[in-house]
Amino acid sequence: MPAMTEADPTDRRQPWAVELDFDRRTVRPIALADAGASMAAGRFVWVDLHPDTLHAAARDLEVFGVPEEVIEDALAGDPATQHARYPHCLHMVLSGCRLRDRDFELQRVDVTVGERFLLTVHADRVEFVEGVKRDLPEDFAHHAQTPSFLIYELWDHLLDRYILVQDQFEERVARLQQRLIGAVDEDLFAEIGELAADLVHFRKVLLPARAVLTDLATRRSRFVSDATQPYLHNMVGTVERVLQDLLADREILSDALNLHVSAVGHRTNVIMQRLTVVSVLFLPLTFLVGVYGMNFDNMPELHWRWGYAAFWGVTAAITGGLLAFLARKKLL
């Protein structure tokens, strides 16, 4: 089998194309201009393009018969998973994703499938597309039965990326959960807020992916073979499991934050209790000091020989009585 060659990875704008022969189980790199001849010979063609080259390659793409609205959508659309059916092709938008430090990024990939071609359009290097290219020769030789094999491969590698991203989210949740146990600063709460927003964003990616997969697996189409549909249906279960793990991570993060707030509230209550005990002890003593600190001449206790000692005796009795009372009530 010929070795697979790829366009210069430093120039993503260079078209990439291969010819797949299902009879001989061979994969052969071709030029974009030769795609029409390969299709006319009964072979299947996969072309991978950068959006900036769509207009320049318009003449070569005419042989595919891709609707104009698909081209325009690939140039200006949002990275939201969706699909549309046309008389001569099936158009899907797949949302690749990746985590770079604390940044959650989406990568749009437009996939157009016809009877004899697969056209993918994306701006940056997308890991799941590169994974399909890397594994294509071996997987094609051993597993390919129909052209919709490539649809399965794209979704399979995409779901692997979703699982990887979910595992990375799970690790971040676990780290933040541990950090909430110790000293907490404002940066930690900012990171928790970012993670919560990323989890919600990821959920918005998974829900449309589940809907598109369900439609592809259950609705008959000449672009998706009956042999491929059961495998796509199994992928729906995979998306469901990722969604369940995602919801579990959100609950764990929420419970950890609530536990931290409860712990802070408990510590505040303990401090307030201690301050209350001090206030209770000093309130009657403050009253006595206030009474005998008044500047009235007719105050008999001021001229009493044992007045000073009696004051301290009363002070000690009140303090001792209050301490005994508070200790019995378990307030100390």
Rank of each mutant, 00 (worst) to 15 (best):
T10Y: 02
T10M: 01
V18D: 05
L20H: 02
R24S: 15
R25F: 13
R28G: 01
M39F: 03
M39P: 06
H50A: 05
D52C: 08
D60P: 01
V70A: 02
A74E: 02
G77W: 01
D78T: 11
P87T: 07
L90P: 02
S95P: 00
R100L: 12
V111A: 06
V113Q: 01
E115K: 13
L119R: 07
V126F: 04
E127D: 14
E127Y: 05
D139K: 15
F140M: 04
A144L: 09
Y152A: 06
D167E: 14
D167M: 07
E171R: 10
R172L: 10
R179P: 05
E191Q: 12
I192P: 01
I192Y: 06
E194V: 09
L195G: 12
V205G: 00
L207D: 07
A211N: 11
S221I: 03
V224H: 07
V224G: 05
T228P: 03
V236N: 06
V236G: 01
T238L: 07
R241T: 05
R250Y: 10
L257C: 02
N269P: 00
M272W: 02
L281D: 05
T286L: 10
G290C: 07
G293E: 01
N295K: 09
W304I: 08
Y308P: 10
A309Q: 12
V314L: 14
L323M: 15
A324F: 13
F325S: 13
L326D: 05
K330S: 12
